[in-house]
């Protein structure tokens, strides 16, 4: 799908947000991130991507982040040498459900680094990339909220959402949970992974993305073809 007027409008709005955030971030630890913006008109194969997944104690914007896992995708290959998984030290008591779902206890969470340090490491790797996530709006809002908390500036970046991509490229009637990561992976013949570890989910999402692009069978996909749309 070529750039329609909605996309043109969205790109304009994104550029304005980017510039505002860049301005605000000056002299903060993440200022450098805004020095490099991934162009949208290059071949997807040439675009550095980072698959990212946060573990948290809830889904609302102010949820406590517990862990970040990420891994780079370059030239249609997941580079495991870039894989990282950082625990985040909990600032307050964890919400009960997170303990059950993520098997992360207060003790384990207390061992991690500060949210600020983890964010700095992550955002350094995100520079000049597009961020790949399943239901990327969640990662987007977590990143934004965390940056506001830690550095007082918003986070603006390019996102690719494998959930949205599936629905856009291969639309069909699905069960309510038909777009869940595990279900989609199974449809692509990808192996079953134990869910809910930040890095494993990031890897799982990256592999799904490679599979989606392969099945799409489009020559010369551009970055703009896969970016998350509003």
């Amino acid at each position: 799908m070529k750039l329609g007027w909605q996309n043109w409008f969205q790109e304009k709005r994104f550029a304005a947000q980017w510039e505002r955030a860049k301005e605000a971030a000056q002299s903060t630890p993440i200022a450098d991130y805004y020095n490099d913006l991934l162009p949208t008109d290059q071949h997807l194969e040439d675009a550095p991507l980072i698959a990212l997944d946060f573990e948290s104690d809830g889904l609302e914007e102010n949820a406590q982040l517990l862990e970040a896992g990420w891994v780079a995708v370059e030239g249609c290959a997941v580079k495991l040498s870039s894989a990282r998984r950082l625990r985040i030290r909990a600032e307050s008591k964890l919400q009960g459900s997170a303990v059950v779902i993520h098997r992360i206890t207060d003790d384990a969470a207390a061992e991690g680094q500060s949210e600020r340090d983890v964010l700095q490491a992550l955002i350094a790797d995100l520079k000049g990339t597009a961020i790949l996530a399943h239901a990327a709006v969640i990662e987007q809002s977590f990143l934004n909220a965390a940056c506001l908390r830690c550095f007082g500036v918003p986070f603006v970046g390019r996102f690719i959402c494998t959930m949205q991509l599936e629905d856009r490229w291969f639309p069909k009637d699905r069960a309510a949970d038909g777009l869940r990561l595990g279900k989609l992976r199974a449809q692509y013949g990808l192996p079953y992974y134990r869910a809910h570890d930040g890095l494993t989910d990031a890897l799982a999402c990256a592999e799904l993305f490679l599979a989606q692009c392969a099945r799409r069978q489009t020559e010369n996909l551009l970055t703009e073809d896969v970016l998350m749309r509003a």
Binding site: A77, L80, L210
Partner: peptide, 14 residues
């Protein structure tokens, strides 16, 4: 060793 690995996906017939 795992950290040296690169993961790729090949559809049938590729």
């Amino acid at each position: 060793l795992a950290r040296r690995v690169e993961v790729r996906y090949f559809p049938r017939e590729a």
